[in-house]
């Protein structure tokens, strides 16, 4: 069974038809890249998967999105529980204006977990997974805002891991970072693949081809082509895909 299934999904913002009849199936423990020119609906589609669009006025969706076989828009689903299973990392690093420690444990604190030794262990584990532990272990109580952009983004990933999701959504997670920090995030994604299902939106073709197993090409709200990354980048079926990846438009 697929980890995630989108069936005939349409999204409207008021009268604007943003996502058009998208069908997509994503397997467990894979990295899927969403590519396409800006404004084509990549972020909108990604944010459907943890219901982050719910807050937008005039937002309307049709079709179904199933995770582990269950409809995530079902009335019985608590959106907070869904988001514990489906984490999200944003384009601009957005640490809370609190200490490094408090950033990592926030997701657990709001679940009511108070046990200090448990929290300490989670902080160490999560920071180790994102290769930040060595850099910050002596200043866990300092403000997260004092970290560099790349460190902040890795902290945001650690914060997401602390909640133990099974899917991680990333919306251009490296686009605001310098090349070295960006490379570190890419390495991290490859490692996380072992235990998580990752979906990443990216503008950067090289990045998509480096980190992902599957690639989905969106254009004007439609899913034009979806397949193995190798195939999409070497012999795409659709001419539109060919034109986009060779940089003829974008």
């Amino acid at each position: 069974m697929a980890k995630l299934d989108a069936e005939k999904v349409n999204v409207y913002y008021g009268d604007h038809h943003i996502i058009k009849d998208v069908n997509l199936s994503i397997q467990e423990n894979t990295v899927t890249a969403f590519i396409g020119p800006s404004g084509c609906g990549k972020s909108t589609f990604l944010r459907l998967l943890n219901r982050m669009n719910d807050y937008i006025e005039n937002f309307k969706k049709t079709g179904d999105i199933l995770i582990d076989g269950g409809d995530i828009y079902d009335k019985k689903v608590r959106v907070e529980d869904l988001r514990k299973r489906v984490g999200m990392v944003f384009q601009k690093p957005n640490p809370f204006p609190k200490s490094i420690y408090e950033n990592v444990v926030y997701g657990l604190r709001i679940q009511g977990i108070k046990d200090k030794s448990k929290l300490d262990a989670v902080v160490e584990n999560s920071l180790k997974k994102v290769a930040l532990w060595g850099e910050v272990k002596d200043k866990l109580q300092q403000s997260a805002l004092a970290l560099s952009g790349g460190q902040q983004q890795r902290l945001c990933i650690a914060r997401t891991l602390a909640v133990e999701p099974t899917i991680i959504l990333m919306d251009e997670p490296a686009s605001a970072l310098d090349p070295i920090s960006s490379a570190k995030i890419e390495d991290l994604i490859s490692e996380l693949k072992e235990n998580f299902t990752i979906i990443i939106v990216t503008h950067n073709m090289q990045q998509a081809s480096r980190v992902s197993d599957k690639t989905a090409f969106f254009y004007l709200g439609e899913l034009v082509e979806f397949g193995d990354t190798d195939q999409i980048f070497t012999k795409p079926v659709k001419e539109l895909t060919q034109n986009y990846i060779t940089g003829r438009f974008g």
């Binding site: 601009k92 957005n94 926030y106 709001i110």
Partner: peptide, 15 residues
């Protein structure tokens, strides 16, 4: 307060 802070909290399962 920037929207990004709220989004971060919601994304971690905050009510």
């Amino acid at each position: 307060v920037p929207k990004s802070i709220r989004e971060a909290s919601y994304a971690l399962g905050g009510t």
